[in-house]
């Protein structure tokens, strides 16, 4: 179990245990494909998901690939950061076909461009023209007030809930 981490470290990558069943690997953007390929060959065959974190102060998006090894009962969390102003990364759908769907979602909600993904059509949102909604600089309250015309005085005696900060 420990040797997988050693092997990764030997590849000149930062890797550390989060707890006794999962570890994280931090990978530069350029090497993400080869690392995921390598992990897949090392029994991490299950692609659990792809998510994104908006580090707005750093100006970066962090893409998080979650992999699972059924043989070792381990979970690998592979993280990579891409610049926020030009979010482009290669698509992983050659490794896992399933990535196509997750990348479609990330594209829709964060505006990340996945090079090589053939299908980046809108997934959940219909007719969306604004900033991708899950970016931190997107003001959902302002959007809501503007589009749905939500006014606190237009409640017909029903008080809206206190604003949850």
């Amino acid at each position: 179990m420990a040797d997988i981490l050693d092997e990764i470290r030997a590849m000149d990558l930062k890797a550390s245990w989060l707890n006794d069943w999962e570890f994280e690997v931090i990978v530069p953007k350029e090497r993400i494909g080869s690392v995921l390929d390598y992990l897949k060959s090392r029994t991490f065959k299950g692609f659990m998901g792809l998510s994104c974190v908006d580090w707005i102060d750093e100006g970066k998006f962090e893409l998080v690939y979650i992999l699972q090894s059924y043989d070792l009962s381990l979970e690998a969390i592979v993280k990579t950061k891409i610049p926020r102003h030009r979010p482009v990364i290669e698509s992983m759908n050659a490794i896992w076909k399933l990535c196509e769907v997750y990348e479609r979602e990330m594209h829709e909600f964060f505006g990340i461009e996945f090079v090589g993904n053939p299908n980046l059509r809108p997934f959940f949102l219909e007719n969306w023209l604004d900033t991708p909604p899950l970016r931190k600089d997107f003001d959902t309250l302002a959007f809501s007030e503007e589009l749905f015309e939500f006014k606190e005085d237009e409640t017909h005696g029903i008080n809206p809930p206190e604003r949850i900060e």
Partner: peptide, 20 residues
């Protein structure tokens, strides 16, 4: 107004890759 939007509701804060 909700279903057939033709222009962004808010001003764009930064230019993002075009969806589509």
């Amino acid at each position: 107004k909700v279903l057939k939007r033709t222009k962004p509701v808010l001003e764009r804060i930064e230019k993002v890759t075009k969806i589509g």
